[in-house]
Amino acid sequence: MACISPDGKPTESGKKILDAAKENRTSEEISITIGLPLFRVRSGLRDLMEAGYLKEDGDKYKITEKGFKSLV
C-alpha cells in the first residue's frame, strides 16, 4: 500500500492526502491540491479508508479522528 507503511501508519503521500481531506474534498480536488496524479489519489483514498483514517461523505472524503491523530 503506497499510502500506508508496513507499520500501519500513513506514509508521506498518505499524510498529504489526509491533510487535504481535512476540508472534505473530492478525489479530483485532493489531486489538484497536493499535485499527485488522480489514479494515485484514488488508490491512496482506498488504502486510507481501509485503515480507518478516512471515510466517504457523498462524493467527498472526510478525515476521521484516527486520521487527525496520525497527523499530530
Binding site: 500500500m1 503506497a2 499510502c3 488522480l38 489514479f39 494515485r40 484514488r42 488508490s43 491512496g44 482506498r46 488504502d47
Partner: peptide, 9 residues
C-alpha cells in the same frame, strides 16, 4: 505505485 485498479485511471 501501490495497489491500483484499472478504474483508478
Amino acid at each position: 505505485h501501490g495497489t491500483l485498479k484499472l478504474s483508478d485511471f
